[in-house]
Structures are given as structure tokens and as C-alpha cells.
């Protein structure tokens, strides 16, 4: 009776049934897609034997490689920058009282819930104005990988800050105080005590930023220039034209990459218990 529901009761069995239903709902579509990506038939719904033709096709496609390269460049830059800025912001809010701390806290939450279309419009108009302003002085700026990376950093800072704060919230502050008592300066305390302790949170935040950057379609599509198409934007363009076995194959590759990232995140954060930090932080904000 510890949790208020009797084990083996009808209610508990109904909840177990609901849980299995949710897992089936989550995984059946993905698994079906993966299976049919190996379908030899070009009619996507009819099984025509095993084949890896579609994989060969996408790997031979230079557009896919270009888009992948753009995606990786943008994701790498935006992850590194947003991890540094986001971690600093999390430390500032969690550890210090300063002028504007509440404002920063409030602003940090908005990019997490704002619908991506709104974010996309904001970024597009911002760059349009900035370019109009700068162009009047001579240099000609244009949309491209740079504007995509700047936009991704704008939403990634918040996600990194949330994850790092969750980690900071669990830290035993007496460890840092002990370091200070032993005459460690603020920088040394940070480098030798605080940073190693929050490292799982920092890496978790970085992986979330990397994932979000690699997944983004809408914001990227708005601020991408000619020749700076990323992989999701390229796939989105294909998907709008309809279903094809090539998209199935490409989707499978991207899903496997996502799952590899989750596995990586679980490893660096030492156990899935840490993943619930994000849940706790989302619930509290």
C-alpha cells in the first residue's frame, strides 16, 4: 500500500496496460519505418523482399552529404558557444544575487516554450533589420550558416542553462565552502571543485543542444541562405513532396544517430537517473 494503489488490483493492472499501450504507441511507428526502409519494393507499403538499394542511393547523393556537412558545422559551433554561455548563466543564477538576476531567469525560460515558428519570425526580422543597417555602411551581409548558428545559440543557451541548473541544485555546497576555507581562490574552487561536480550536467546540456541543433527545421529554414541547407531542412523539403523509400532510409539513419546520442548522454551522465533531472527542472520552472 506504499503508493496508495494495491499491487495486483484491477486499477494497477489497468495502469500497466496503459503503460504498455504508450510504449507501443511510441515505438510501433518508428520500428515499422525502420523495417520498411529495407523494403525492395518501390511501392512503400507493400513488402517486396529485403534490399539496401535505398541506402546506397542516399549515400551516393551529394546533396545529402552537403546538407549533413552544413548541419554538423552549425551544430558544433552552436553547441560549444551555447554550452559556455548557458553554463555561466546557470552558475550566475544558482549561486549569486546580482542586479537583473530575476530578469535573466525569466528571459531564459521563454526560448524553451516559444513555438519555433515565432522564434523563426523573430530571427528573420532581426537579421533583415541588422543587414539593412550594416549594408548602409558598405559590407554586404547575407543569410547563411552564420545566421543559422547565431539563431541556434539563441534557443540553445536556455536548454543548457536548465540542465546545468538541475545539476547545480543537487550539489552539496559545503564542498565548495571547504575548498574556500582551505584558501582556494574563486577560480581554483571553480576549476577543481565545482566544474568537475557539474560536468555531467554540462555534458548533458551540450548533448541536448547538439540534438536540438541537429533537429531544427523551422528556424533554420527561415534564416538559411542559398547553399546553406541543413539535413532536416533538406529532408523536410523531400517529405512535403510525399513518401518515398529513400526518405525511409534517410530517416532510419537519422533515428539511429539520435539513439546513439541518447546512449552517449546516458553514459556521460552515469545512469538514467540523471535524465530525470531535466524532468524535475521542467516541472519546477
Amino acid at each position: 500500500m506504499r503508493f496508495g494503489i494495491r499491487p495486483g488490483s484491477t486499477l494497477e493492472r489497468a495502469m500497466a496496460g496503459n503503460a504498455w499501450f504508450v510504449y507501443a504507441f511510441f515505438y510501433a511507428p518508428i520500428i515499422t519505418l525502420v523495417i520498411f526502409s529495407f523494403n525492395a519494393s518501390s511501392r512503400v507499403g507493400i513488402w517486396g523482399g529485403l534490399s539496401t538499394t535505398w541506402y546506397a542511393n542516399i549515400f551516393r547523393n551529394p546533396e545529402v552529404w552537403d546538407a549533413l556537412k552544413n548541419s554538423l558545422v552549425v551544430a558544433a559551433v552552436s553547441t560549444v558557444v551555447s554550452t559556455i554561455i548557458g553554463t555561466a548563466a546557470a552558475l550566475a543564477i544558482d549561486r549569486y544575487r546580482f542586479r537583473g538576476d530575476r530578469t535573466l531567469d525569466g528571459i531564459l525560460y521563454l526560448p524553451i516554450i516559444i513555438p519555433d515558428v515565432t522564434m523563426a519570425v523573430m530571427m528573420l526580422l532581426f537579421f533583415a533589420r541588422i543587414f539593412a543597417f550594416v549594408d548602409s555602411f558598405g559590407p554586404r551581409l547575407s543569410l547563411g550558416l552564420g545566421t543559422i548558428a547565431l539563431s541556434h545559440i539563441a534557443f540553445n543557451i536556455s536548454f543548457v542553462a536548465v540542465v546545468v541548473r538541475a545539476r547545480l541544485g543537487q550539489l552539496d555546497k559545503s564542498l565548495e565552502e571547504a575548498a574556500r576555507d582551505l584558501y582556494a581562490g574563486p577560480w581554483e574552487t571553480f576549476r577543481r571543485v565545482t566544474l568537475p561536480l557539474i560536468m555531467p550536467g554540462v555534458l548533458g546540456g551540450a548533448l541536448l543542444a547538439l540534438t536540438l541543433s541537429l533537429d531544427d527545421v523551422v528556424v533554420t529554414a527561415f534564416v538559411a541562405g542559398p547553399g546553406s541547407t541543413t539535413l532536416p531542412v533538406y529532408v523536410f523539403g523531400l517529405v512535403r513532396r510525399g513518401v518515398s523509400p529513400e526518405i525511409n532510409a534517410l530517416s532510419t539513419v537519422m533515428l539511429v544517430a539520435s539513439i546513439a546520442l541518447v546512449a552517449g548522454s546516458l553514459l556521460v551522465q552515469r545512469g538514467p537517473g540523471r535524465t530525470s533531472d531535466l524532468a524535475h527542472e521542467l516541472a519546477q520552472e
Binding site: 510504449y23 511510441f26 515505438y27 511507428p29 518508428i30 515499422t32 519505418l33 520498411f36 512503400v44 541536448l208 540534438t211 541537429l214 533537429d215 527545421v217 532536416p232 529532408v235 523536410f236 517529405v239 513518401v243 526518405i247 525511409n248 530517416s251 537519422m254 533515428l255 539520435s258 539513439i259 546520442l261 541518447v262 548522454s265 546516458l266 538514467p272 535524465t275 530525470s276
Partner: peptide, 21 residues
Amino acid sequence: LVFVMIPFWSNFLIRTYAWRF
């Protein structure tokens, strides 16, 4: 929880496309 995190971290576009398919 891990099996909830996997769809949470997977590409949104691809998951939507799975339903189109």
C-alpha cells in the same frame, strides 16, 4: 524512463514523417 527519453531525444521531423508513412 530511458524508453521515454529515446522518443524525447529522437528527431521530431522523422517521428512525424513516420505517421505520414
